[in-house]
């Protein structure tokens, strides 16, 4: 039972990451390679503020969101206007720098050892302790994040974003401030990814340098494209499918196998095959990666 709880919590955290990545990639066409870094920035901000600075969980979580958004603006301002391949590359570099800084800035991040003892959230005198309590907390956060993204995708904001994604010049010609809108959306993506980082920190009570690098980026992209662009349902389906995959291996008795690398090979293969045969993902809309 405990294991099922863990699985559900992980699917929800990844679903939240996927839906915020979808806001960038699916809706706005911003191919962000920094998403895992913002996730890490959120986790570390939460850990540092609660463990070292002694702030309460809620303030730390809000500040984690703000930090993710702020750094996204900082990195987005010079790079988003460059567009295309330059942006992809800059974000790639950014994610490597973030990983490197987390490991090397020992005075702040405790280096490779990570930070332990992140407190669990509490409301009034009620302290979330049990697995069920945590499941409830993550479920509430997930509901909130999905609600916000549903609001985005069912408002005039969606049309403006899709216009930018499909043809920036036409979007400009219709009065949309393309650069500003992209920066705002990128900041939101960064903020929500950081919020997911806070959720993860509360759940694991511990943050460490691995888990926010290239492998996580690939995993998130695979989750997004398996589920499909511009789809709230897809943001659940992708993580659910990919999280259940290792369980399948356990089930068919592949104990001695190098599951980590089999998984990675599968993600790579999935990305290729999806682009070839089903760019809209399993349940996504036809929109997204246009021809």
């Amino acid at each position: 039972m405990e294991y099922l709880q863990h699985l559900l919590i992980m699917v929800m955290i990844y679903a939240c990451l996927t839906v915020s990545l979808d806001l960038n990639i699916g809706h706005a066409g911003i191919l962000s390679f920094g998403h895992a870094s913002f996730y890490g920035i959120g986790a570390y901000t939460t850990a540092i503020l609660t463990v070292y600075a002694g702030l309460d969980w809620f303030t730390a979580m809000v500040l984690a969101f703000a930090m993710g958004a702020f750094i996204a603006v900082l990195i987005g301002l010079p790079t988003l206007r460059l567009g295309g391949d330059y942006f992809i590359l800059a974000l790639f570099g950014f994610s490597l720098i973030v990983t490197s800084l987390i490991i090397n800035m020992e005075w702040l991040t405790n280096g490779p050892f990570g930070i332990r003892g992140v407190p669990r959230p509490s409301i009034g005198s009620y302290q979330v302790q049990s697995g069920y309590g945590m499941l409830g907390f993550i479920a509430i956060m997930t509901a909130f994040i999905f609600f916000v993204h549903w609001r985005f995708a069912s408002s005039p904001m969606k049309a403006a974003l899709h216009a930018i994604r499909d043809d920036e010049s036409v979007a400009m010609s219709l009065g949309i401030n393309v650069v500003r809108t992209k920066i705002i959306v990128f900041a939101l993506g960064g903020g929500f990814a950081a919020l997911c980082g806070a959720m993860g920190a509360f759940y694991f009570r511990f943050v460490s340098a691995d888990g926010y690098g290239l492998q996580t980026i690939i995993l998130l992209w695979a989750m997004l494209f398996v589920g499909g662009n511009c789809s709230l349902l897809g943001a659940f389906v992708g993580p659910a499918v990919l999280m259940l995959f290792p369980e399948l291996f356990r089930f068919i008795g592949g104990q001695g196998w190098d599951i980590g690398h089999i998984q990675e090979a599968l993600y790579g293969l999935l990305l290729i095959l999806l682009m070839m045969f089903r760019p809209q993902g399993l349940v996504g809309n036809k929109v997204g990666l246009r021809a």
């Binding site: 191919l31 690939i218 690398h261 990675e264 790579g268 999935l270 990305l271 682009m275």
Partner: peptide, 30 residues
């Protein structure tokens, strides 16, 4: 080539490329 044949976007080609990199690295490790 299959992606070009489908008139895929540059983004799709790039994702395919990332996929190929990930797949190859994992297969080498295996």
């Amino acid at each position: 080539r299959p992606l070009r044949a489908r008139k895929s976007s540059e983004a799709a080609l790039f994702i395919g490329s990332i996929g190929a990199l990930t797949l190859c690295q994992a297969v080498f490790a295996l």
